[in-house]
Design a protein around this nucleic acid. Structure first.
Lengths: 226, 226
DNA sequence: CGCTTGTTTGAAGTACATCAACTAGGGTGG
DNA sequence: CCACCCTAGTTGATGTACTTCAAACAAGCG
């Protein structure tokens, strides 16, 4: 891991995020001022569960995975963050400890904001607080969706759902590229990699063609009712 | 369902909540001013998924269950709220629609706060925003815990966890009363009622005695390593 | 006492995990 | 350019945890 200062392109990425773009200008400056950047290899661990943490991370490139460990050493993903997503906002307002292990799932670059500064800004400026509130509500909804999916859907249904969520409405056929390894998708969906593989082959009968990371949907209807 | 004004004891309950007690006095008044109360029979539906919703609910007594429906009509609980908990905070800052079905799981009384008012206060007063931020982070952590439990633990382990979470630290043996029907606990843990029942009987071998709603722990050690 | 509702138990089925073997790409070094 | 290796992914066989359906049982409450 190497730690650096923000480049101007890093700044540009940050300022374009939904979260940042809603902040008042002075708050933007204040946050960026103390920010640093770090680069990580795949499988690097950024934090371990319960580590004290006084940064909020922003993924600038790559992929960061949050997972918890079972007593038997098994890993369960609780979230996967892509470019532009914020990590560790919850911890900032709770006990300031990581609620999960944080790991780079591929070579990644993350910005590190100072939680203390962000907390202070939120306490002084309702605009900042507002942006955080919206972000947290969005996270909350995602989590609820995820729990409901886990409890209601079978593996092929979860995969179908994922595919459909990347498929613009109103299109009958479509194709896109997975933004990460299949094993990461498996973790995100709460499946073993083998189960994901089998789910894909089940969906082939409903017009889903998978070649490498490219997924092609031939019959949207069939997928939706799966 | 009957709608009423707040009684003074309702006001007292609300003002004692962690959330309310952190609010500045004028904000408390402003919120209580527009609040109403409604009573519900068991199984009453308060909202259906996607209903527009412009209240935040507070459970004053009883139990309120949030669940989503699968395509086949199966129900999956996403949260269960007891006395003193707030419902619908996420929706307030998103699209203002219910993210799940909301149902009284037993005869219940809920206060209804005006989301518009609360939103306005949060936009004007960082104290209010702060209280909401902490609340949402807490919700977020709960959701993450829940997802991780679902993915890492077997049914008996989840039940053991639940029991331990109600067992004061440092006590070797202990007993407490379930705050709701077993079928509700089953839903909360993502299990069929039968699975919960079987989990209890598995745990009997580890010193858990269940009589009606009363649960007795004879050997905390055994439970912890389950 | 009998009815309703909640819980337990049993038997059968299903979905997913796990383990192991095999296959396909994607570099690397010769 | 090919042989090799390493990793990611697939496929098969087996085990297991939970669901589902059905029936027995218990507990309130009229």
């Amino acid at each position: 891991m190497k730690t650096l200062r923000l480049t101007s392109s890093d700044r540009a990425i940050l300022l374009n995020l939904r979260f940042f773009s809603r902040l008042p200008r002075p708050a933007q400056e204040a946050i960026l001022e103390g920010a640093t950047v770090s680069t990580h290899e795949a499988h690097d661990t950024l934090f371990r569960q319960d580590d004290p943490i006084d940064n909020v991370l922003v993924v600038l490139s790559g992929l960061v995975r949050l997972y918890r460990l079972g007593k038997d050493g098994r890993e369960a993903d609780v979230a996967v963050f892509q470019k532009g997503e914020l990590i560790g906002v919850n911890a900032m307002f709770l006990d300031r400890r990581a609620t999960a292990n944080v790991q780079a799932a591929e070579p990644s670059i993350v910005a590190r904001l100072e939680s203390a500064k962000l907390r202070q800004l939120a306490a002084e400026d309702t605009g900042v607080a507002q942006a955080l509130l919206e972000l947290l509500c969005h996270h909350g909804k995602m989590a609820e969706d995820c729990l409901a999916e886990d409890r209601l859907l079978t593996a092929p249904q979860r995969v179908a759902n994922y595919i459909l969520s990347h498929c613009p409405i109103g299109t009958e056929s479509f194709s896109f590229r997975l933004p990460f390894q299949k094993s990461v998708l498996a973790g995100k969906l709460g499946l073993a990699p083998e189960a994901l593989s089998r789910a894909f082959s089940t969906l082939r009968r409903s017009g889903v063609v998978v070649k490498g990371r490219v997924i092609e949907i031939r019959d949207r209807q069939a997928l939706e009712q799966f």
